[in-house]
Computed example of a mutant assay.
Amino acid sequence: MQSFAVKTIGAIAAIGLMTLGSLAFAQDDAFDLSVPKPEAGAGADEFADLECGTEMISGSGPGFTADRDEAETVAIENWMEKAAKVFPDTELDFDLAKDSNLSCAVQGLYSKCFADGIPCKSKAE
């Protein structure tokens, strides 16, 4: 028969493990950039003056970095390089991309970001 102290310690340990398990999957909403841009639900009129590619392009940096702003910038720059292959003679802007999304994976103090979107350019007049 186990003593009361051993049962209590076991119960406290079990609660602690459950709490740690739930924290391992918790996400800090302050750093979640995976939500669509606010103007993203504006509808088809938003892209009426744009010519868009047919495929989603994804860009990211080479690895995790301590500077989140740098990770975002590198992801967008990588996306721009890939989008330039779709529209080679046009200056592109990530803000014009259809279904664009900028999200970051966080590991401790380090971030790796991903820029996704369908490249678009202004229609020729």
Rank of each mutant, 00 (worst) to 15 (best):
M1I: 15
A11S: 15
I12C: 08
I12H: 01
A13I: 10
A14K: 15
I15G: 10
I15C: 09
L17V: 05
M18A: 07
F25P: 00
A26G: 02
Q27H: 07
Q27F: 01
D28A: 13
D28G: 10
D29Y: 08
D32R: 04
L33N: 12
V35D: 11
P38F: 10
A40Q: 15
A42G: 14
F47Y: 12
L50T: 04
C52G: 13
E55I: 03
I57G: 03
G59H: 03
S60M: 08
G61F: 04
G61C: 10
P62N: 09
P62A: 14
G63F: 07
R68N: 14
R68K: 15
D69M: 13
A71K: 01
T73M: 01
N78M: 00
N78W: 00
W79T: 13
W79A: 11
M80E: 04
E81K: 12
A83F: 02
A83Y: 03
A83C: 04
V86C: 07
D89K: 04
T90R: 09
E91I: 11
L92I: 03
L92K: 01
L92S: 07
F94E: 03
A97R: 06
K98C: 07
L102W: 04
V106W: 02
V106F: 01
G108V: 02
L109M: 15
K112P: 10
K112C: 10
C113Q: 05
C113L: 05
D116T: 09
D116H: 09
P119E: 10
P119R: 05
P119T: 13
C120S: 05
C120V: 14
E125P: 14
E125V: 12
E125C: 02
